[in-house]
Amino acid sequence: MNIFRFAGDMTHLISVLVLLLKIYATKSCSGISLKTQELYALVFLTRYLDLLTDFISIYNTVMKLIFIASSLAIVWCMRVHPIVRRSYDKDLDTFRHYFLVAASFILALLVNEKFGFQEVFWAFSIYLEAVAILPQLVLLQRSGNVDNLTGHYIFFLGAYRALYILNWIYRYFMETHFSRWIACIAGLVQTALYADFFYYYYISWKNKAKLQLPA
């Protein structure tokens, strides 16, 4: 474990906590894409298939349980919770995310580290996570104004994978046989998708203004 990876995991955890706070505090999920949340639940469920078979550390197991439980809880809130579900922007959240699932799975069948059940699903989860934010970014552009907590949620979500890229660079130089080129390339794509959001987030922070994305 290196500082970049630990910082990345904590940033990822903070993003989840900020989203839970937003939903709990405002009893609303306006501005949040249910499709992106469903994709994240799928990412964690397919990536952590080794939860019961490979024990790495207490930290690893606890964090996996937190990410699986929180992503399912958020999807449950947005679909079932009588008050929260009413504020879901159903007619704005129209990205056809099934294409992302299909494309990621096909790519995982073609490009993986080993052609095995767990390995293919691991590669699938890596590719899917890289594009899972797309429905959320599209919803953001459509809904125009973004409440602060939603803006912070997306910022931390984007920042965590950027920290992971530093972790892969660090491990590449420090560990002999370390190679995570699938995760690294997907991580670069994932972080690049946030580029324009990071820019508008920085502008809003610099001008102490509300976060505005161009329609």
């Binding site: 995991d9 990536r47 490979d54 790495i56 964090m63 996996k64 560990e175």
Partner: peptide, 10 residues
């Protein structure tokens, strides 16, 4: 550190 191939990252 985990051996080769084991996914030790989240």
């Amino acid at each position: 550190t985990a051996d080769e191939g084991v996914k030790d990252e989240l």
